[in-house]
Design a protein around this nucleic acid. Structure first.
Lengths: 250, 250
DNA sequence: TGCGTTGATATGTATATACATAAAAGCAAC
DNA sequence: GTTGCTTTTATGTATATACATATCAACGCA
């Protein structure tokens, strides 16, 4: 249930932590330090209650949260065991493009290139998993950092999922923030790859053809209905994705 | 504490879920569907107890987990409120390279190119944050899918953090799995970028110079001590990182 | 009007208790 | 020895209760 960010609390700060948090932190630290390696059987709830002088509910709360976090595995009758780190999983934070440009200290500008409402074609199915007789909005736009193109955005939006886009010109507002503020999404999928810029991309980004570009594709669903597919293309050297780490996760 | 993966349970399966899980799921669904938008004040614990006919501890457990998951925010005296999705964050799963190749259905092969134990230079500091008079192991190796190079690995390992590497040749075993199984890490940082292959990289990967490559750099710490820095270079079109999504996270 | 005190309220944590359940261990009959 | 039962055990869930604490609102006093 938990990722480690939320499992972490301030120990050094000396602020009062509750008892179950102390128990949780103690065990977590022993696991992360390697003192209790994968497979290690951590003390029974019963033992921890005597060790900490508290009730079973309290240690149960701590252990349950560790189990939710994927750090330990609980087995009835057998006890609780340190889990092997399953997969190295990193948390990628997808920032707003404007925020990225702001972070560079450069003025941000957005520009709509094309806006086309049309019937979905067979080719769109790969990008957006809509039933075939359906209407989509295709957008192409650019994000600028200063006066240099920073990112190219090609987007497909399902009109079935978001009918209101028909009334939105997107001349001033980028579709990303517009959608985020309007459509509650509950699933998404990202693919990240490196591709050489083709002629059109190179021209739009103001770079030489063949330059390495970082391409991020994202598909988003809301209530099992496909909402949008977006392809963001960054000139290779201008951008890096940074991912924070999450220690161990089911 | 929770990420949504673990918050999710099988509703359709019809398997018996506990009461607090039902409460948790009900509220989560209303938030993710948008029925309860950001800022919405969800019913007080007291109201939920009467609504579900259960004790406060039970609804408290559900609400606490939602708060840990970052879906709601709890304020004393005021109630609990739906949080605005903070950042689009995706969970990137960093697979073992052998597993990636296996997934392609191709035979995997590993090959060590160079192995050099030496004093750390100023240039290494950027990669591995070690104190200057210290020793590092520099490795360069290739991972093959079939008979084509799949991935180039350049690695720096701190001997202070992992003295045992001095005795390991890495002729047979890749350093990645070796380290994972041996060193408990508790922090890492990833940077993902697209770069054009330079002459050496192109030769090593068997591609044309300038071809777009996906470069993943990872720095790993164990107990606040830098352990390793690795740069993985994939020929652009041969590889894409896929990231699963996590709905909303503090 | 302005300010401090007081009380009400919702959440935060902890306890003792109870019963359910899964799983392993022990035991007995075949 | 294997099968099938019972017992033990540790966890899973839920309850009623208690007190702490942060905070908002209302009140009363200067």
């Amino acid at each position: 249930m938990a990722d480690m960010e939320t499992l972490r609390e301030e120990e050094a700060g000396g602020e009062p932590v509750s008892l179950y948090q102390r128990i949780l932190g103690d065990i977590r630290d022993r696991i992360l330090s390697g003192e209790w390696p994968p497979g290690y059987r951590i003390p029974f709830e019963h033992e921890l209650t005597t060790q900490y002088g508290c009730s079973r509910m309290t240690v149960n709360k701590a252990l349950s949260q560790l189990a939710n976090a994927g750090l330990i595995e609980r087995r009835r009758r057998s006890g609780s065991f340190v889990r092997r780190p399953q997969l190295q999983s990193a948390i990628l934070e997808i920032h707003d493009i404007k925020a990225e440009v702001d972070a560079l200290g450069l003025p941000y500008r957005y520009e709509l290139a094309t806006r086309l409402q049309r019937k979905a074609t067979r080719a769109d199915l790969v990008r957006l998993d809509v039933p075939l007789p359906s209407t989509v909005l295709e957008l192409s736009c650019r994000h600028f950092a200063g006066d240099r193109p920073f990112c190219l955005e090609d987007r497909l939006i399902s009109l079935a999922a978001v009918p209101e886009v028909a009334d939105e010109s997107f001349a001033e507002m980028a579709p990303g923030p517009w959608l985020v503020s309007r459509v509650p999404w509950n699933a998404a999928e990202h693919a990240i790859r490196a591709v050489g810029a083709d002629a059109a991309t190179a021209a739009a980004l103001g770079i030489a053809a063949g330059t390495a570009c970082l391409v991020i594709e994202r598909r988003t669903w809301s209530a099992d209905q496909p909402v949008t597919h977006v392809r963001l293309t960054y000139a290779g050297d201008s951008h890096a994705l940074v991912a924070r780490f999450t220690p161990s996760q089911g």
